[in-house]
Write a protein that binds this DNA or RNA. Structure first.
Length: 555
RNA sequence: UGAGGGAUCGUCCAAUGGUAGGAUACCUGACUCUGAAUCAGAUGAUCGGGGUUCGAAUCCCUGUCCCUCAGCCA
């Protein structure tokens, strides 16, 4: 699927150049390093596709490595969820998930080595003092008074840090670089801090934990990663990434940064996503309105559609805000190819075919997928009483309305041409209760033998045969392009992002299970929710079909 | 105003000194047993100012705007 299309971008060009010059002996190995502190969301597939995709293209491997160096923020709960999302997207890693914490022993040894090299020292400054000494963006920092301790003293102190002799925050191990560096990252960055907190994997073995900058580059190095592909905010950290590896004289991967993806009408920050869940604006991390991969999956998005989107959007170093319409196009495009068609009515209006024999039923043949002949056909029951969509009838139709109206003839898809003869209304409210039509028996299947043209084709279900189900109609979670605008982003929540309503679907749907995807003709793509029971199906609307009539109406 | 990055159709991405192209969105039309899909067409951009060059989105100078960094987060 699209594999023959030659992808190229600045990262692949750099790697191709490395391979030309033999920088890594032609080997390409990457890694995807999520911190297990939240669910994967729409911002992640780009990094996933780049790292796993590139490794794959070059016949290399991509490790899934949990970046778990801060036990106060991370939890095993997220590990399996992250792994499942990546698997769902269709990517594979080696035998098992890797963890930065797997390297805590090696990392500790590297830290001692740095001390021995005179490139690291134990600092007694308090967190506040560290901040003061660091200087500012425009002023250089000052050296810590503890900066020039002897190697022996540093080693002793560091070992005692490890042994738990000091309180949290009392001391840190810092790299000895340059407190006047114009790059603040290089002003003697902290590499180990004391945290008397058990770790979800190493238990209480450690009370000191390495910082990201130290752990990350060395984890990459230890694994033999060749290309460490990460997002733009780590550009400033690359100098430090390189510094550690140079000092320690170990295998040195190349870090390359690319821009993260953002989407309009969408919020992706973990903090805000967490708030939506915590404050009950959505039902959970996998609420089908959430931009999490779990939410999109439940909503009915396919992994292929997400991967196609990533390919469509490309890669660059410019911050970008992708139009969510691109995502919507990607799902429609994929679902159009693969979804079986089915008829369902969301807002029923009863139709009585007055000249159709009472009690008669017949089965009509319907095409399962016009995009895919191999999907075959099915039989759909037809009878005297049907339901059609309420908006498919208008007593006083506007111009260009070619659905049902008094005197008008339309086609009931795969069934008959019918003409509206009567409208039955509630005498007090004026509400339309039912519509009476006559059918033309000569048009069975939907074709007129005399060749007369009928513009409108409606979907329908046979009232006595229909299955009653629940439809969950989703719309964008936010109704403004930039949900961050204004005082509080929750003010921009779309109050009608979910509408739950009963619906009628054709009987062929009986027995389909959670995750089943289909198109309700003329309405959109739907996916069976895990909340479904054999007694009551629940359909999530993944996305509507494009609707140019609605567009005309809107003007 | 220190350092590191970035600026091309509304949006996203190409063009690597030689016709600014594709995707998406929007608009027209054709086709249609889904007002879907498909097909055809239109609209629409090089951040500003200088310079080099036969020729500049690309190279040089200059200005502007945007992003990231002052966690013992990642």
């Amino acid at each position: 699927m699209g594999d023959e299309i030659k992808r190229s971008d600045f990262i692949r060009e750099i790697i191709a150049e490395h391979n030309r010059t033999g920088r890594f002996g032609g080997r390409v190995q990457t890694r995807f390093p999520p911190e297990p502190n939240g669910y994967l969301h729409l911002g992640h597939p780009r990094a996933i596709c780049i790292n796993f995709g590139i490794a794959d293209e070059y016949g290399g491997i991509c490790n899934l490595r949990m970046d778990d160096t801060n036990p106060t923020k991370e939890d095993v709960e997220y590990v399996e969820a992250i792994a499942e999302d990546i698997r769902w997207l269709g990517f594979h890693w080696g035998d098992h998930i890797l963890y930065a914490s797997d390297y805590f022993d090696a990392l500790y040894d590297y830290a001692e080595r740095l001390i021995e090299l005179g490139k690291a020292y134990v600092d007694d400054l308090s967190p506040e003092e560290v901040r003061e000494y660091r200087g500012t963006l425009t002023e250089p920092g000052r050296n810590s008074p503890y900066r020039d301790r002897s190697v022996e003293e540093n080693l002793d102190l560091f070992r005692r840090m490890r042994a738990g002799e000091f309180d949290e925050g009392a001391r840190t191990l810092r790299a000895k670089i340059d407190m006047a560096s114009p790059n603040i990252v290089m002003r003697d960055p902290i590499i180990y801090r004391i945290m008397k907190v058990p770790h979800h994997r190493t238990g209480d073995k450690w009370c000191i934990y390495p910082m990201y900058d130290f752990a990350h580059c060395l984890s990459d190095s230890l694994e033999g990663v060749t290309h460490s592909l990460c997002s733009l905010e780590f550009e400033n950290n690359r100098e430090l990434y390189d510094w550690f590896l140079d000092q320690l004289d170990v295998h040195h991967p190349q870090q390359i940064e690319f821009a993260k993806l953002e989407f309009n009408y969408t919020v992706l920050s973990k903090r805000r996503l967490r708030r939506l869940v915590a404050e009950g604006y959505v039902t959970g991390w996998d609420d089908p309105r959430m931009p999490t991969l779990a939410g999109l999956r439940r909503r009915g998005y396919t992994p292929e559609s997400i991967r196609n989107l990533i390919e469509m959007v490309g890669i660059s170093k410019a911050n970008s805000q992708v139009d969510i319409a691109m995502l919507e196009h990607a799902v429609r495009d994929d679902l159009n190819q693969r979804s079986p068609r089915v008829m369902g009515v969301l807002d029923p209006l009863k139709v009585v075919i007055t000249n159709y024999p009472e009690g008669q039923t017949e089965e009509l043949e319907a095409v399962n997928n016009p995009q895919d002949a191999s999907a075959g056909t099915r039989r759909v029951p037809f009878s005297r009483e049907l339901y059609i969509e309420r908006e498919d009838f208008m007593e006083e139709p506007p111009k260009k309305y070619y659905r049902l109206s008094p005197g008008a003839e339309v086609r009931l898809r795969y069934a008959y041409l019918v003409t509206c003869t009567d409208v039955v209304k509630d005498p007090t409210t004026g509400e339309i209760l039912e519509v009476h039509c006559t059918y033309d028996p000569a048009t069975r299947g939907g074709d007129a033998p005399d060749g007369r043209k009928v513009r409108g084709t409606l979907h329908w279900v046979s009232a006595p045969h229909a299955i009653e189900a629940e439809a969950r109609l989703y719309d964008r979670l936010f109704n403004v392009e930039d949900p961050y605008q204004g005082e509080d982003f929750v003010d921009n929540l779309n109050p009608s992002s979910l509408e739950v309503r009963p619906c009628y679907v054709e009987p062929s749907l009986a027995g389909v299970g959670a995750g089943y995807r289909c198109q309700f003709e003329r309405l959109g793509y739907f996916c069976v929710d895990p909340d479904s029971t054999p007694e009551r199906l629940v359909f999530n609307r993944t996305i509507t079909l494009r609707d140019s009539w609605a567009k005309i109406q809107g003007r």
